[in-house]
Amino acid sequence: MNSVVRYINDIYKGVISLWAGMRVTGKYFISPGEIVTEQYPENRATLKMEERFKGEVIMPHDENNQHKCTGCGICEVNCPNGSIEIITKKVPNEEGKMVRAIDKHIYHLSMCTFCELCIKTCPFNAITWGQDFEHAVFDRTRLTKVLNKPGSSLKKKEVKS
């Protein structure tokens, strides 16, 4: 007798819990406003990342192809896994003296852990985050980038009057 009661009880409880679960599913089935899926490759044109999004390290250049990097090498020292290599050269300044300038700012995206230490410690704010996130490539060497553009030069400091 007891087992029969338990059996019927089990069936009753099972149906109730099934109904409760199905009601949740049904609720979302009939309310399409709740759909949150992003149609990613199709919405590329309108997709905008957050302004602080860490896509990759970039070096902004102005319209005269000038950047702010002096080649001091502080970012290279601070990077925990050697993603940055600084190659400097000597160039003459206005007075004809040879001074150090950046030749190549090499950035290995494949080794970067996005820890932000290089950007935080750069004393000249020469590098920042870029928003590009589509980094898939067929060849790993393409992830090694030179951040300063060819022919670019150091921006003159504005003299405050």
């Binding site: 957050e50 602080r52 999004f53 860490k54 852990t113 996005f114």
Partner: peptide
């Protein structure tokens, strides 16, 4: 993502 720029790490 809004505050730190990354979602997991």
């Amino acid at each position: 993502e809004e505050s730190f720029g990354s979602r997991l790490l």
